[in-house]
Design a protein around this nucleic acid. Structure first.
Lengths: 218, 218
DNA sequence: TAGATTGTTAATCGATTAACAATC
DNA sequence: TAGATTGTTAATCGATTAACAATC
């Protein structure tokens, strides 16, 4: 479908943000928007917005700007949200449960088809219409149900062993909430990390940097 | 305590990762490491590692490398993890609950002192030794308990109104899980965003980009 | 001392911003 | 047509990498 080579990571990271803002404008009934107006709202420069969008095509019209609706749809398409990648969730603890319940996978190009845990107390419980299965059944399940993506919501120590099993099954795309760097161990995989601890520490740095006395304590 | 001006965002984002890897080395009993060895493990260049660390001081020793333990401690200190910033959590739904239970706030420079929700069914339930309080009591609580940070685990639509109340109370540091851009509306605040939807969409893009047929469908 | 590895400066690379001609 | 705003090229800025002298 697409295949845009050589798009830089900073550009890709901004796409969901464009999508979000355009969605809000759409909800408000705004029909057209110029890069200048979008710039004011989003805090990027107008130049950057035009530069970013032109990586994928000329979606605007000189003298007019961009149609909010068509740009929203274009970006959704660029992101690949019209897919239905089959995803399984590993780990039905607090975090896994929150991810399962909280996310609108269908709107983001995915479909959650299975949840696994190794804790007998959790196996059989139902989350979002899906019955939690025993991790032992992973291989059997994946043989019967082609799976594109695995979501890791397991402790750091369990991650590598499960990743090895999934890799053997040919599942090489991961959404990783585990405090562990999967990316280091294989190089033909796609990993999107959500390292909450890292995020919290960055916040800590920024607060400390803003608040602390400049070298007066010593 | 610290106050390192002009440290670029890319450097700051790498700090937690250094901290994590050094912690693992420490656990394994490794005493010293060179920028070269660390480079192999982490996937940054040795040059970048030395450059990054030298933003904050000369922690190494020529001909030897870095002491794992002292570098670990230094980075923890740079990040400000020896603080105890008082944090409150807004929203005790699935996500809020997962964040409250899952995170080791104490190890990351924070202390969770309160949880709020506006759902009567949730008020009074206990999460991590903290009884969920009614959101109406926010002002009173913060007057009695000086609070540094608010964690947003509420729906997009509720975020702005609550942010306004917190801002009035002088709370200007936010860890934001809400699908909403707080940063746009005030400019003297510190926001660290965890946009899970954005992360999921970036994964979708990357899978699509790797898998789709190159322009053959048309 | 000789070898190793840092700290730091200089070179390169890439991303952002500015400018403007094309054009709706 | 005239005005507005894009698409795109060129200029600037910043971050990464390479190189090497300092030094443990």
């Amino acid at each position: 479908m697409h295949k845009y080579e050589n798009i830089s990571a900073p550009v890709i990271k901004r796409l969901p943000r464009y999508y979000r803002f355009l969605g809000e404008l759409l909800d408000k009934g705004v029909m057209r928007i110029s890069s200048r107006e979008l710039s004011d709202k989003m805090g990027f420069t107008a130049s950057q917005i035009r530069q970013d969008l032109n990586c994928f095509g000329g979606f605007g019209q000189q003298g007019y700007g961009y149609s909010v609706e068509s740009l929203y749809n274009e970006i959704g398409h660029i992101l690949g949200l019209d897919h239905k990648y089959k995803a399984i969730l590993i780990g039905a603890g607090n975090l896994g449960k929150a991810v399962a319940v909280h996310m609108s996978f269908e709107k983001r190009g995915f479909q959650l088809i299975g949840i696994f845990d190794n804790d007998p107390a959790k196996v059989g419980t139902v989350i979002r219409d899906i019955s939690v299965a025993d991790l032992d059944g992973l291989e059997e399940f994946c043989a019967e149900n082609p799976t594109d993506v695995a979501i890791f919501c397991v402790p750091k120590t369990a991650t590598q062993a499960i990743a090895d099993r999934l890799y053997k099954l040919g599942i090489k795309n991961y959404w990783n909430f585990s405090h562990y760097d999967l990316s280091i161990h294989y190089d033909d995989i796609i990993v999107e990390n959500v390292h909450l601890n890292d995020s919290l520490m960055i916040l800590c740095y920024r607060i400390s940097d803003a608040n602390d006395e400049p070298e007066s304590t010593k």
